[in-house]
Amino acid sequence: MDNRNMSDIIESYLKEILDQKNQIEIRRSEMADLFNCVPSQINYVINTRFTIHKGYKVESKRGGGGYIRILKINLLTSNDYLETMSEVIESDLTESEAHAILEQLYGNNLISAREFRLLVTIFDTKNLSTCEDLNKLRSQMMMGLLERLAYEELE
């Protein structure tokens, strides 16, 4: 018996398609019918599991002919990814967002497995607990990391 919840099943389905194509265009109501769930469940999955931090861009058009398009960010060069991430990181960065970015850096061979583990430890909330504004500090640290990686790419 499959113990995954509905969100996991929907995510897996969409990622399977995205493994074959770099983008998918869906209609929320059709997906809800396919999975026998409410359309808000589809929204939840898209909003939480297909974020820019996780390597996806989501576009949507509302109305009768509306759609949701999910694009897998295709990195032509690592600098493209680093630039995109630098643009979307605001002054606050949660631990889960930092982890998602680190997973993308590792998945795209911009950092090693050892570096990934070290950085996850550094960005962990329990290791930043003496700081007053954790998300701001985490954001500044990530920006520094991305700038350094971009600099190394140019060398």
Rank of each mutant, 00 (worst) to 15 (best):
N5K: 12
N5H: 07
S7F: 13
I10H: 06
I10S: 03
E11S: 14
E11G: 04
S12H: 14
S12Y: 11
E16I: 08
I17R: 09
I17Y: 13
Q20N: 14
K21D: 15
Q23Y: 11
E25A: 01
I26W: 02
R27N: 12
E30I: 13
M31Q: 07
D33V: 04
V38C: 11
V38N: 14
P39E: 14
I42A: 02
N43H: 03
V45K: 01
I46M: 04
N47E: 15
N47V: 04
F50H: 07
F50A: 07
T51N: 08
V58T: 06
S60N: 11
K61F: 00
Y67N: 04
I68R: 03
R69F: 05
R69M: 13
L71T: 01
L71R: 00
K72E: 07
I73A: 04
S78C: 09
Y81W: 07
E83K: 08
T84D: 11
S86Q: 08
S86G: 13
V88G: 04
S91M: 11
L93M: 03
S96K: 13
A98Q: 11
I101T: 06
L102P: 05
Q104I: 11
L105G: 05
L105Y: 05
Y106W: 12
N109P: 02
N109Q: 13
L110G: 03
A113W: 01
E115I: 10
E115H: 05
F116V: 06
L118G: 06
L118E: 14
I122G: 03
F123I: 06
F123L: 06
F123E: 09
T125A: 15
N127R: 01
T130I: 15
T130D: 13
C131S: 10
D133E: 12
L134R: 01
N135G: 07
K136I: 08
K136C: 06
R138G: 01
R138M: 00
S139M: 09
M141H: 04
M142I: 06
M142D: 09
M143K: 15
G144Q: 13
G144D: 15
L145P: 05
A150Y: 09
A150T: 09
E152Q: 14
